[in-house]
Write a protein that binds this DNA or RNA. Sequence first.
DNA 1: GTTTGTATACGAAATCATTCGTACAAAGAA
DNA 2: TTCTTTGTACGAATGATTTCGTATACAAAC
Lengths: 127, 127
Amino acid sequence: MNQNIKPTESELEILNILWSKGACTVRDVHEVLEQNKDAGYTTTLKLMQIMHDKNLLTRDASARSHVYSANVSQEKTQGQLVKKLIDNVFNGSAAQLVMQALGNHKTDKKELEAIKIYLKEMENKQQ
Amino acid sequence: MNQNIKPTESELEILNILWSKGACTVRDVHEVLEQNKDAGYTTTLKLMQIMHDKNLLTRDASARSHVYSANVSQEKTQGQLVKKLIDNVFNGSAAQLVMQALGNHKTDKKELEAIKIYLKEMENKQQ
DNA sequence: GTTTGTATACGAAATCATTCGTACAAAGAA
DNA sequence: TTCTTTGTACGAATGATTTCGTATACAAAC
């Protein structure tokens, strides 16, 4: 059914807003977008209409201002994009990606702890 | 100088080949590409010429068959793409990306060990 | 030397992502 | 009611990516 999610960069920006705020009107989304880039209102509208056509969004059109929601989960989208990165850029090795990510980005103690716990859990399940 | 590397998907396929095989002619690269997709020889040629224009590749044009090399390092490219993914899709949290990567992709014992060692090293350096 | 095969260069079509202008409908204020 | 604001719809320009056809040069085989 919902095979391959391949949002563009602009689409991803919109999805991020909907994931964090829940259902929104175009204006809601546009107001957030405006803070980081300048594009007109109709640009945002058009993008969201296209995303609706592609089934990335659902919408409630009963009111004058339509209310849009993400129709793909954040987790699943993250998963697909990570998989693509691993396949295309890390020769299929998740571990290589992990070390790149850890090496070049600040990660605080709490997060490192979480990762260690995660690793232990995996080991227990594995054997 | 070489600020932002943003290769397209096709360009990444070509870079991967050059990273793994070293300097290549267009034909060399094309023969590898052919195994996974069908596009004509001149398509590959044009792509590599464009990449040369963009400074993603260097070339030795002294012989009739020009010999191309990657002009961006694999590490740096990986780093940029990982950073972009973290920023755009994981709200800036490297740890979240790491756990996604570990959770959904098979990682064998050897690789897990490598990650654990890596984590320990980081801790030692950190405090 | 002519033919055949293999190069590069280059123009241009096809597709997609992004952007915006404009038309027009619906509410609400004057 | 009329004017202004705020919505949707939609066509179309722009720019980037991908693709290929064709022109032309060189080299090797015949």
